[in-house]
């Protein structure tokens, strides 16, 4: 498989195609314009001030850290679940697929309340821990995990489905145990899809506001901080915080994309 050259293929563009392009560009503009405007409206001094703002930088660190922890911990169970969903046919599988996607469709404030009833002081988890997870990084991570785990499980499931089952079968006949097949064939072939699912889950966790604000107003994650500053001080103070988080996230994700893209290129030439 070779990458398509980056130019029009097929016949020259028709009026229909031009129309589609125009419509498509409108959507693109709708996404890009607010982001660009916000970034461009923020002056360099404002940004450097934001960088020196301990409350803000701490919140960014907290946000990235809790979302990453949520992703890593959930991967331990989410990746095996994805493999089961991809490979096994069992009664209730369709229901399970729907349940996994529930967090995506329920309002995130409701998701926050749901998480709260499980990790609050009077919940089972609260009693076991002797204290509530409310207002702790662990509570924040739980709220983030709840709303973002579908991204990981779905991406990983698709990645496993993309591994030809014959490869796993052949490996078994060559003497490999199911566990060995998983670690030497399924996982190495699906890791790129799994990684992209993890990145998606991480990104979704970082951006979560609704569920997090119910479980923990303090310590403040950056989305909560942006909201609080907007409420208390108005647009200007909130914007520099928002812009800083956006820049940090974009840098990280573009970096990861490039990394994944490069290894994909490598694999393609393989």
């Amino acid at each position: 498989m070779s990458r398509q050259p980056a130019r029009w293929s097929g016949p020259p563009p028709s009026w229909f195609q031009s129309g589609l392009t125009l419509l498509g560009s409108t959507v693109l503009l709708f996404v890009l314009a607010p982001l660009l405007a916000m970034v461009l409206d923020t002056s360099a001094p404002e940004l450097s001030q934001a960088l020196a703002d301990r409350e803000l930088t701490d919140s960014i660190r907290l946000t990235l850290g809790t979302a990453l922890a949520a992703t890593l911990v959930c991967s331990l169970g989410g990746v095996p679940l994805a493999w089961l969903l991809a490979r096994k046919r069992f009664p209730g599988r369709a229901l399970l697929l729907a349940v996994i996607d529930l967090p995506v469709i329920i309002p995130h404030s409701a998701a926050g309340l749901a998480v709260l009833t499980v990790i609050g002081r009077h919940s089972l988890a609260g009693r076991v821990l002797g204290d509530s997870l409310l207002g702790t990084p662990a509570g924040i991570a739980a709220a983030m995990a709840f709303v973002s785990i579908p991204f990981l499980v779905d991406a990983a499931r698709e990645a496993f489905e993309g591994v030809p089952e014959r490869l796993e079968r052949v490996a078994r006949t060559l003497g490999a145990s199911p566990a060995r097949v998983f670690f030497t064939v399924s996982l190495p072939m699906a890791w790129r899809g799994i990684l992209s699912g993890m990145v998606l889950m991480w990104a979704r966790g970082i951006s979560e506001f609704g569920a997090v604000v119910i479980v923990a107003y303090h310590p403040m994650t950056t989305p909560v901080l942006v909201f609080q500053r907007f409420n208390d001080y108005g647009l200007d103070r909130a914007r520099s915080a928002a812009v800083l988080l956006v820049l940090v996230c974009v840098t990280i994700f573009v970096g990861l994309r490039l990394l994944a893209g490069r290894t994909r290129e490598g694999a393609r030439h393989a």
């Binding site: 079968r169 052949v170 078994r172 006949t173 060559l174 003497g175 490999a176 145990s177 199911p178």
Partner: peptide, 10 residues
């Protein structure tokens, strides 16, 4: 026996 113990290579 599971496939890995049968020693029939596919």
């Amino acid at each position: 026996d599971p496939p890995e113990r049968r020693r029939f290579a596919m």
